[in-house]
Simulated scan of single mutants.
Amino acid sequence: MDRDWKRLGRAIKAQREHLGMATQQDLADNAGVTRQTVQSLEAGTERKRTPPTIGKVEKALGWEPGTATRILSEAAPEATPRFAEGMPMRIAKELSDGQVVDTDVLDLTLPGSKSRLVVVFKQDSEAANMDPAELRAALQEWTRIQRALRQITAGDEADEA
């Protein structure tokens, strides 16, 4: 099976830069691998098999597991990020870190507008392993925040009336 390591290298570099990671060391730090690993991947160094660290790199880039393997074996498209095209890099980075616990969409529609506020409640990687009592406390805090946001939007509706 032909595998295109150069294409994978280009895709990794493009996604790293898209996420605002200016250097290979930035990606290495986020993935928990060495800079040499990232350098070798971006250079498209030929390998007989996929390195075991590729999963960490995929996660740091916000890719679904197996994306690198697909890029290596497919004839065409570069990897696409999981997030909407044109999303600011700082938001894409925030969304790619940690674990999503819950989301809420609050309608902030003004006359003639179709705007909505999307709120994402996330935990960082370490918090993803919290015990049940800590998770309960975090979810209680999230519920409090949701109520406050809904009161704000309800207050805006009352002001318009």
Rank of each mutant, 00 (worst) to 15 (best):
G66L: 04
T67W: 01
M1N: 12
E58V: 00
G155A: 12
T153W: 04
T34Y: 08
V57W: 01
D104M: 13
I145M: 06
I152D: 02
L41A: 06
T80P: 02
G98P: 08
A22G: 12
E157G: 01
G66N: 12
I12Y: 00
S40L: 02
V119D: 00
E141N: 11
K93N: 10
L61Y: 09
D29R: 06
A92G: 07
D159P: 00
L27N: 01
T153N: 07
D97W: 04
E64G: 00
K114E: 09
V119Y: 08
R147Q: 07
L72Q: 04
V101D: 03
D124R: 08
A127M: 14
D131G: 11
P51F: 05
M21P: 00
G155Y: 03
K59T: 10
M130C: 13
G112K: 15
A161Q: 09
T53E: 15
M130Q: 05
W5S: 00
R82E: 02
G155W: 04
I145C: 08
E58Q: 04
L61R: 04
R47N: 06
N129V: 08
D2E: 10
P77A: 10
T34V: 04
D97V: 13
R147W: 04
A137H: 13
K122M: 12
K56Q: 15
I152C: 05
G62V: 08
D29V: 03
R90A: 03
P132R: 13
P132H: 07
L72D: 02
R49V: 12
A92F: 05
E17P: 02
A148K: 14
V57F: 02
T103H: 09
R147C: 03
W5M: 01
K48I: 06
A133Y: 10
E126G: 09
P88C: 09
N129D: 13
D29Y: 03
A127T: 14
